[in-house]
């Protein structure tokens, strides 16, 4: 038996730690809390770098969204959904329940679908975030988007961005997903219009290419 210990924090070869230092939390906020409790705690913890904490009022950080860098001020308590929608104006990501139950806010973080409403934006620093706005390349729709349209895998469309993000994760992980795999991996996305059967069709067709 052997150790199964991949590096979950690597972002295309850059370890998250370096990435964080290099591009992530800048020292803009440093002056603000240099003398504060945060720093005392950090020093006590043997951490020298202020980039290892974020004060209540937040700090400027780099988010890497849809292959673009965004410099944005983030408070620790802000969720990724909030920051995407309110600060980056990426309103394609919806929130339907604010509790990770409906999946409307699904984005990919390093290719894994997550509920951006239940994910702190600061935790996304240094990671690759893909939102619905980043699925098509230039003017070309992704095959999944095409299949969603061709198969009418949408009605009111409010759940659609989340549904597509989960579907994208499916076809990235599994080139030939079967019905059961698709259903299981879409089980975090609610569609009140009841469009699921056509979503399944669209995913199967998109996976086939």
């Amino acid at each position: 038996m052997k150790k199964d210990k991949p590096d979950p924090n690597s972002v295309k070869g850059i370890s998250r730690r370096n990435f964080l230092k290099g591009f992530g939390i800048t020292t803009v906020g440093a002056a603000v809390f240099e003398s504060g409790q945060a720093t005392k705690n950090l020093k006590a913890a043997g951490l020298l770098n202020v980039s290892d904490s974020i004060p209540i009022e937040g700090a400027k950080m780099i988010l890497y969204v849809n292959s673009k860098e965004y410099s944005v001020h983030i408070k620790p308590k802000e969720t990724l959904a909030e920051v995407l929608r309110e600060k980056l104006e990426l309103t394609g990501t919806k929130t339907g329940c604010e509790r990770g139950s409906c999946g409307a806010c699904t984005v990919l973080i390093d290719d894994n679908p997550v509920n951006s409403c239940m994910f702190l934006a600061v935790d996304a620093v240094g990671k690759q975030i893909t939102t619905i706005e980043g699925v098509a390349s230039d003017e070309n729709l992704h095959i999944l988007q095409n299949e969603f349209i061709e198969n009418d895998a949408l009605q009111c469309g409010f759940c659609t961005p989340g549904m597509i993000m989960s579907s994208l994760a499916i076809i990235k992980k599994n080139p030939a997903p079967d019905d059961e795999y698709i259903r299981k991996n879409l089980s975090g996305n609610l569609c009140r219009c009841g469009t699921y059967p056509k979503v399944f069709q669209a995913v199967i067709k998109a996976a086939k290419g």
Binding site: R85, E89, L90, T91, G92, T93, K94, T131, I132, E133, V135, A136, L141, Q145, F148, I149, E150, D152, L154, G157, F158, T160, P161, I164
Partner: peptide, 21 residues
Amino acid sequence: VKRIDGIDKTTGKAKYTFDVK
């Protein structure tokens, strides 16, 4: 016939009241 607003809805461009700012 496929929806005419399919592209807006599948790319996140569609603006709902929820998105109006």
